[in-house]
């Protein structure tokens, strides 16, 4: 097989109190695919990504990562080589200079002594600077991260992912708090870098336009169940209308 399945989601369910977040969801993702998760708010997109990020565990069902069940990845260092996460820009440490936020992608490989030393004398600086160049921020290496704009901070997070270099990138609403121009910019870069690094990308998005423009495959969730799972250019306006409209009827 030239394109093996890297992620296999098998009948997972998750409840919060009485609310059903996900029910018997199954799909699989091939290596190198770019998947957008779409659907109305509360559909379970973030829950799904949190399960994939092993932040929470499903109540039922299993997730297979590269052929092995998720529980095999209890070691965070091993897990970090497989899956990397980017969320909204609030996930960076604002008080630190940019370079340390980028080098944080190396923490899984580094021992404690090396990570302390790095705060004083940045270690493996070249890798950090190279990835900052790739995201277009070569002049902000020592800037305080909190002083950067939202779009720039999101690029720093991308540079960190480059340094971490996982096989799968999960993006939870990566552009939710950015204006349209910055959002396009960040999404373009995210998908471009994932393609260059031969990474698998799974992103949840609010905007259908961006999802169609930048992703190969759209997986729509509604009320915790799979609504449709289609290639990006095969999704019809009718289906999208139904995806978002039905929700309002229920309300």
């Amino acid at each position: 097989m030239s394109n093996p399945e890297i992620l296999d989601i098998n009948q997972i369910s998750k409840h919060f109190e009485r609310k059903v977040a996900l029910s018997s969801l199954s799909f699989s993702v091939k290596k190198g695919e770019r998947v957008a998760l779409i659907g109305p708010s509360g559909a379970g997109k973030t829950t799904l990504l949190n399960i994939l990020a092993s932040v929470i565990e499903p109540d039922e069902g299993q997730v297979f990562l590269d052929g092995e069940p998720m529980q095999e990845y209890a070691d965070r260092k091993k897990f970090a080589k497989k899956i990397g996460i980017i969320r909204q820009q609030f996930d960076l440490v604002g008080q630190l200079p940019v370079i340390h936020n980028v080098l944080a992608g190396k923490l899984a490989d580094w021992g404690f002594a090396k990570s302390i030393l790095s705060l004083l004398i940045p270690q493996e600086k070249e890798a950090a600077i190279r990835s900052l160049e790739r995201v277009g921020l070569p002049d902000k290496v020592y800037e305080r991260t909190a002083n950067l704009s939202g779009g720039e901070q999101q690029r720093v997070a991308l540079a960190r992912l480059l340094v971490q270099s996982p096989q799968i990138v999960l993006a939870d609403e990566p552009v939710a708090s950015l204006d349209p121009a910055r959002a396009e910019d960040v999404l373009f870069m995210l998908t471009k870098l994932a393609a260059e690094e031969n990474q698998t990308l799974i992103a949840s998005l609010h905007s259908i336009d961006y999802a169609r423009k930048y992703f190969d495959r759209l997986i729509a969730l509604k009320d915790g169940v799979l609504f449709f799972d289609l290639e990006a250019d095969k999704v019809t306006d009718e289906q999208l209308k139904e995806l978002y409209q039905l929700k309002e009827l229920v309300r």
Partner: peptide
């Protein structure tokens, strides 16, 4: 503290002590 930066480091493979040095300490120092 805002938990998001620390959690993000945790999910990128940082140990408890690394999280302390990289996310907690800089944020609480002032």
């Amino acid at each position: 503290l805002d938990k998001r930066p620390a959690r993000n480091l945790a999910s990128s493979g940082a140990s408890k002590w690394q999280i302390l040095m990289y996310a907690v300490l800089p944020a609480v120092m002032p």
